[in-house]
Amino acid sequence: MTGWLGKAFVAAILVFLAAPLVVVAGVSINQPKRLLFPPEGLSLKWYGELFTKSDWAGSLTNSAIIAVLAGLLAVSVALPLALYIWSRGGLLGRVLFGLGIAPFLLPPVISALGFMVFWISAGLYGHILATIISHAVFLVALPLVTISLGLESIDRSLIEAARIMGANRRTVFLTVVFPLVRPYVVSGFAFAVVLSLNEYIIAYMVAGFSAETLPIKIFNSLRYGYTPVMASAAVLFVLIAVVVFGAIARFGDLPRLLGAHRSQDA
């Protein structure tokens, strides 16, 4: 299974996964405003429009604000929760953990409708704050899982040692626990930000008409015609994802973060 035939199979699948992205990258640098591949003439003007034309730049700004604030809020919920579950466990911990990962495991359209009726009732329907909080709740699962993984990898004798030396709980947290889980906090935040940037249905149902995000803008333009700016926006998203996940892999142990436990030597 791992011979050349297996490698060829893996390579073929990777080509299948890359193909649509390559074509989109190709059409994003077309000279004419038409959907053509291979591209005719080379131009980066569509990337320029993405950042300068007010409607595209506006949704790009909305997306960035929502993603960063939702990511921060998700981490600020996930970190104390993960710490509580790690140090206490118990029924409440398990219930809260379940509540934390449920929004992410369920089909997003369900949460989207739940959020929609909630914000209508709360009077914030259509407000960007509704999108930020909804995204944060939807994405709590990611930092919750990564931080829990990080806490589990901490050697408990380190904490015992710190306690014996006379450190109080606060000092133990700040000098031992937090530095050890920091990479997991950062990766959880990064996962949440990337997924918030790409999220469509919740953002659309909660405030789709007033706080337009980039995915909503792309879908709207897809419905009313074609512009290569869509392609350049898509390429930007792929690049952000590759850079963020590449950085996590560079500075952390990605296979372990994704659940591989057996130590594998290169």
């Binding site: 996964l17 897809l222 869509m230 392609a231 994802a241 590449g246 296979p255 994704l258």
Partner: peptide, 17 residues
């Protein structure tokens, strides 16, 4: 895995387009 994660995070809008 970096590539798979990147594809996973892609918006349905982008996959559809």
């Amino acid at each position: 895995l970096v590539f798979i994660l990147s594809v996973l995070s892609l918006s349905e809008v982008i996959i559809g387009f």
